[in-house]
Design a protein around this nucleic acid. Sequence first.
RNA 1: GCCGAUGUGGCUCAGUGGUAGAGCACUCGAUUCGUAAUCGAGCGGUCGCGGGUUCAAAUCCCGCCAUCGGCUCCA
Length: 606
Amino acid sequence: MSASQLSPEQPQKISLPRTSESEALHKLRHSTSHVMAMAVQKLFPNAQVTIGPAIENGFYYDFDSPQPFTEKDLKAIKKEMIKIINRKLPLIREEVSREEAQRRIAQNNEPYKLEILQDLQEPITIYHLGDQWWDLCAGPHVESTAELNPQAIELESVAGAYWRGDETKAQLQRIYGTAWETPEQLAEYQRRKAEALRRDHRKLGKELGLFIFSEEVGAGLPLWTPKGTMLRSQLEDFLKREQIKRGYQSVVTPHIARVDLFKTSGHWQKYHEDMFPLMSETDAERLGEQGFVMKPMNCPFHIQIYKSELRSYRSLPMRLAEFGTVYRYEQSGELGGLTRVRGFTVDDSHLFVTPEQLDDEFLKVVDLILDVFNNLQLKNFKARLSFRDPASDKYIGSDEAWEKSENAIRRAVETLGMEHFEGIGEAAFYGPKLDFIFQDALEREWQLGTVQVDYNLPERFNLEYVAEDGTRKRPVMIHRAPFGSVERLIGILIEEYAGDFPLWLAPLQARLLPVSDEQLAFAQQVNQQMLAQGLRVELDTSGDRLGKQIRNAEKEKIPVMAVIGAKEVESNSLSIRTRASGELGAIPVPEVIEKMEAAIKEHNYF
RNA sequence: GCCGAUGUGGCUCAGUGGUAGAGCACUCGAUUCGUAAUCGAGCGGUCGCGGGUUCAAAUCCCGCCAUCGGCUCCA
């Protein structure tokens, strides 16, 4: 039983091609973005064009406009687009010399296009939309706007976007749109978007009462309710058990530390803007160098524990693990639900290994991570080798250390034959990573699990172990977190399961529903019996009619509903209805308990 | 942080210058009922916060906070 089977939706009849899978669609969307640009410049003659590519489900176009567009403008722009499309304008490709392109762009007074032109290779092409509008563009395009269906196009939103993705450069106005071959496809796309909204963990988290945010506590600081805490605990307990099997040792460290600690680690120098400021201005002055900061990472703390004694090669690898809550000052506009918060718990562990142990230990960590994903039924992820951008100065350590680390990660994915891609500039400031990337319901990508190889922090903290030959040697560190962050993982899980958790994770596993008060005494007794077995059960004492009790339980997505009427009392059984499989009929109480325990153990549905 | 939008009882939402509304939830009463809503009554909001305009502000203006869609940034 997979989570998706729980979805009440009909099987999809209309398939939705993605831009990357259809050359025709790519052309259609790219051409639509040109039509939109033409419409925008007709309505807003001061708007300058920049770039307007096709994206997976549609297209966008960035403009530099003295007046920002609002969502109300979209209607007018759409109307203008329809007019253009209905004129059945041909899209004509013209190859021009660099000088000619430059002359024409200058004529139109389009500085951004001029900048684009500078980076272009020959041949340089211009696409004409009829004889009134053209754009510097590589194409390809549809042959005529007659190929575009106004009924299959929608303008979706406006947003600010920086020129060339650089926040120090001008902010442009981006308009997002979607375009399809048929109105039916557009309708299906919109239906799926609505469905995605239904799965949104922010909406479900509120409905299911898993966590809250409080304006008074602050943005990006989730508060976990009893139900949400149960879910968290299950995940944490599961991982703790796995880690014990694999030789990890739990530790606990504080949430704040002297700023000096982070100067030694390099956080203060390279990670400063992501950290909450010193405890307070006055304290900083009073305490001077002893100012305290919230921890943005756990590594320096675990390093202190490693350093607290002289370590022998015999005691390595040493694997220190902690569900460590860290605080990072994320930009306000970046916060969202549980996927991006300012205080979150990393299922962190730091492994101190000899250089010889590195490869083997790295593989063991990846094995654990994949095992965790498997247990959570998470299948749709990509592995990213997150390397540094050699041109950037945001990293610490020598080139040699970086090369050694990156090579270790490369060796690992090769040994495993794991599919992967490289992300340049995605490394942590102290070392490269192997990251596991997942998608949320709205197709946004999030990093969850991560493994990092680090030669730098052992150096900065002067870590040592005594080798076989009695000399002092430097260990290598592996930083790793299968969940990445408990908060983000739960956000992704809620959406993956659409709120229907497998039994082991469900905050409330079963609710007993008495048909009338006549059955209360028996229900009470069954309730006690199940609680005694460690099952998370609850008795509905509302006195509501059965239909209402079921409706409430369904809305709360309680996996097992146990109806108790006169017949059930008579036969010491429960009439079982589950979220996953519907009505299952009467089952003797001991058998229900047995089946629930089996499902819990197998991380499955009832 | 930047661009745009939004903020009305616990929840979902109506109300655009003239005495704050509905449904659900909650409380009480009646009903004792077999697989997604029994009926009735009641309680509940300084309309995100602060300032301003006005005889009068949920409604108009300014600032802040929070949320949402993006950009930049990241677990």
